[in-house]
Simulated scan of single mutants.
Amino acid sequence: MAGNPYYIITGAPSTGKTSILNELRNRGFICHQEIAREVIRENLDTGIDIFPWNNMHGFSDLVLERMINLVKTFEPTTTQFLDRSMVDLIGYMKFANNPVPPHYIREALSVGYSKKVFFLPLWTEIYTQDEERKESIEEAEKIGNALAETYQSLGFDLIEVPHAPLNDRVSFILSECEQFQEL
C-alpha cells in the first residue's frame, strides 16, 4: 500500500464534513466523528466551562487527550476517515493567536496520518451556525485558511474537495485514496 490508511477530512466549519463521513460510514468504512464537537456538547450538557471561545488551551488539551486515545485503537492497515485531526487543534490555536505547545506538533506528526488530506473550502451556500459552531462566516473563512496553512507547513498535501452533490464528493475522495486506485 502506497500510504497510510488514516485519511483526514478537514476544512472550514460547516462545509459538509459530517455528511461526507456519514456517507462513507454507510458505504462500510470506519469513520471517526469530530472529537471537538463531542467535547463541546458534553461540556454544555454537564456545565463544564471549558470551551474554545473561553479557554482555548484547556479545551485543546481535553481534545488532544481523546485524540491520542483514539489513535491507539487504530488498526495499522485498515482504512479510516477522520473528521479533523490533531493538526486541526494546531490550526485553531494559530487562528486564535495562541502559542502552540511543541508536544501538539510531535503528537500530530507521530500518528502516521496519510499525507493526503481532504480539504473542504468554505461553501457559503451551506454554512450554518449551531450551539457548537459559533463562528461567523468571516471567522469560518479565516479558520479554513489557518488550517490549510498549518497542514501545508507540516508537510501534508491538501486535496481540495469540490463543491458538488454528496455522492460526487465521496466518490472524488475515494478516487484519490491510493489503496482504491490499486483495485
Rank of each mutant, 00 (worst) to 15 (best):
G3P: 05
N4A: 12
Y6A: 06
Y7E: 08
Y7R: 01
I9L: 14
P13D: 12
G16L: 10
G16Q: 10
K17Y: 05
K17H: 07
N22E: 14
R25S: 13
R27W: 03
G28P: 08
I30R: 13
Q33A: 14
I35C: 05
A36D: 02
V39F: 07
R41H: 12
R41I: 09
R41G: 05
E42K: 10
D49Q: 13
I50K: 15
N55S: 14
M56L: 11
H57P: 00
H57A: 09
L62V: 07
L62K: 15
R66P: 04
L70Y: 03
V71S: 09
V71I: 12
K72P: 02
K72Q: 12
F74R: 05
P76E: 11
T78W: 02
T78E: 15
S85T: 10
S85Q: 12
V87L: 13
Y92E: 04
F95E: 04
H103M: 07
L109I: 03
S110Y: 01
V111M: 12
V111L: 13
G112Y: 13
Y113W: 15
Y113P: 01
V117S: 04
V117G: 02
L120P: 06
W123Y: 06
T124G: 02
E125P: 01
Y127T: 06
T128I: 13
Q129V: 13
E132S: 11
K134N: 08
E135Y: 11
S136N: 06
I137Y: 04
E139C: 05
N145P: 00
A146E: 05
L147H: 01
T150D: 07
L154H: 04
F156C: 02
I159Y: 00
E160P: 01
P162L: 09
H163Y: 08
H163E: 13
A164H: 06
L166G: 08
R169Q: 12
F172K: 02
S175R: 15
C177K: 03
E178F: 10
